[in-house]
């Protein structure tokens, strides 16, 4: 059986049961949702370009109007934010509990890159 034939077989409804499995002590296979993707934000110092950890990030990524607290950036200045493709923009708030950096509000409308670099200034 080559891969081409396997893919054909996989798509046939009568043979679907052959491809759906879960390990004896595992979970069912996940639900694939192509409407979502994951945007990595990297917070950097606006002057030195060094990553800034410990920055609190809040996001508004859907039409609910509810701001969601994503958490704080890690030592690489990064945090991952889930976004729905149904959404045409992501609104973000960045704040520094230590007060070293000025809080920032921004909106991202271009999702072609999975990584967005956000500069913060003191």
């Amino acid at each position: 059986m080559n891969k081409w034939f396997r893919n054909l077989l996989k798509g046939a409804s009568l043979t679907t049961a052959l491809f759906i499995f879960q390990a004896c002590y595992g979970m069912p296979q996940g639900i694939y949702d192509e409407r979502e993707f994951y945007l990595t934000l990297e917070v950097v110092d606006g002057v030195t370009k060094a990553p800034v950890g410990g920055i609190t990030v809040k996001s508004l990524t859907d039409g609910s109007g509810q701001w969601y607290e994503e958490g704080v950036t890690d030592t690489d200045g990064q945090i991952v934010v889930p976004v729905s493709y149904a959404c045409d923009k992501v609104q973000l708030k960045f704040s520094d509990a230590d007060g070293k950096y000025t809080a920032k509000d921004t909106t991202i409308v271009e999702f072609s890159e999975p990584l967005a670099r956000i500069p913060l200034y003191k």
Partner: peptide
């Protein structure tokens, strides 16, 4: 599949999930 032990004892379970999903893999747990 996150398994253990009890996966929910990991304090970074949410970041683990995001890390997996952001790489394009589905994930779940027992």
């Amino acid at each position: 599949v996150l398994t253990g032990g009890e996966p929910l004892l990991r304090p970074d379970i949410e970041q683990v999930g995001l890390g997996i999903r952001s790489r394009g893999f589905l994930w779940g747990m027992v």
